[in-house]
Amino acid sequence: MKKIIFPNIWIVLCIVPVSTILLIYTFSIGEKESLPAYISYICSAYSLIIVCARISTISISNLKNKIHQNKIIHRYLIDTSFQVHISLLSSTCINFVFAILKLIYGIKDQSIWFGTLAVYYITLTTMRCILLWHVNKNEIGSNLKLEYKQYRNCGIILLLMNIALSGIVILMIRKNESFQYPGYLIYVVALYAFYNVITAIKNVIQYRKYKSPVLSAAKIINLVSALVSMLSLETAMIMQFGQQRNSEFRRMMTSLTGSTICVLVLVIAIYMIFHGTNKRRRIND
């Protein structure tokens, strides 16, 4: 029984993805009472048992010790500057890839929709590049005058990005454009979108204590990106699960959510511009 419940770690690593693939296959084709379906049920049940058994033997203190033994992970957990650097680097690369892809599709298909999305991702990439350049050259909190300048610059670019965001909302309403996710991917996107919003709000509040404009700007940009992801999720959910003929409901919801986000982004951008400018003047005085 011990060998069955606590098999070799390689068996655990193999059977979990196999059972996942079998379950996806079973539910996608709809044959829930066939022989492959019963095999997938057995595999998934066994996977759950052995994973839970493994987790039950892990000591939280030992797990923390093992995690902190890794120098990079340890630094990431305790060094706020390093956390921001990694976050900016990864998000900048992702936004850059999205911007290039949307631009290519926009030119190839001569699509205003993809072109507008490309502008949105380009502005996101630009703001994050500004902040990434700053944290590469300067220690966070060491030069507040320069940090407030970058903070203000991000506000100006955010103001320009709001134009592209307004264009996206208008295209959603008038041209029936929307984000679409195939199959069960929409549930993963929904989970990720809610996680992004909750994390972004928490970080905006949490990082205020560091009194760093660059940190605040990075978290504000994350919040704006998370709000836009919620808008894209809403349109995708309505298109996938709502009645296609009920276009008035879709337009009403997109108008309300989209206009609220655009106004909120506009207020944030104006605040960043004026707050950054006033703080720089006070430092000069």
Rank of each mutant, 00 (worst) to 15 (best):
Q110T: 02
I205E: 08
T126Q: 03
S44T: 09
R281M: 06
Y148D: 02
I170G: 08
N65D: 13
I104R: 04
Y195M: 15
V189H: 15
I42F: 13
F249V: 11
V197T: 15
S34T: 10
I86Y: 07
V224H: 01
C43M: 08
L23D: 08
T92L: 03
H68P: 05
L103G: 07
Y105A: 02
L88E: 04
Y271M: 10
K145H: 14
C93L: 14
E33F: 12
K202P: 06
I100D: 05
K102D: 10
L264K: 04
S111C: 03
L117N: 15
I104P: 02
L215C: 06
F98R: 05
S44P: 01
I170V: 15
S216H: 03
M237P: 04
E234D: 13
K219V: 08
R152K: 06
I186H: 10
V188Y: 15
F27V: 13
R282A: 02
Y271L: 09
L159K: 01
L227H: 05
F114H: 13
L89W: 08
G115W: 03
V18L: 13
M127F: 00
I130N: 00
Y184G: 11
L23Y: 10
Y184Q: 14
E139I: 09
W133E: 08
L22C: 04
S232V: 10
S111R: 00
S178W: 11
I58P: 03
Y38E: 07
V51Q: 07
N143E: 10
L13M: 07
L231W: 05
L63F: 11
L158P: 04
S91I: 05
Y207K: 14
A99L: 02
I29V: 14
Y207Q: 14
A218Q: 00
I78G: 03
V228I: 15
K64C: 11
S229A: 12
A200D: 06
S232H: 13
I273R: 01
H134S: 07
A99C: 07
C154G: 02
Y184K: 11
L160C: 01
F194E: 12
K3N: 09
P36E: 09
S81L: 06
S47T: 00
L131P: 02
V224M: 06
L215M: 11
L124C: 06
L215A: 01
S225Q: 14
I42W: 06
I50E: 06
L146V: 10
I21E: 10
Y105V: 02
V263I: 12
I283G: 05
I221D: 00
V18R: 04
I55G: 03
G258Q: 05
S56Q: 13
Y41Q: 07
Y192S: 15
N95K: 07
T116S: 13
C262V: 14
I198T: 15
Q110W: 03
M272Y: 00
F241Q: 12
L171E: 15
C154S: 03
T277H: 05
L35R: 10
I220T: 05
I157G: 02
L131S: 01
Q243Y: 15
K64H: 09
G242V: 09
K71W: 03
V84Y: 01
I140P: 00
G141V: 04
L191P: 12
V188K: 11
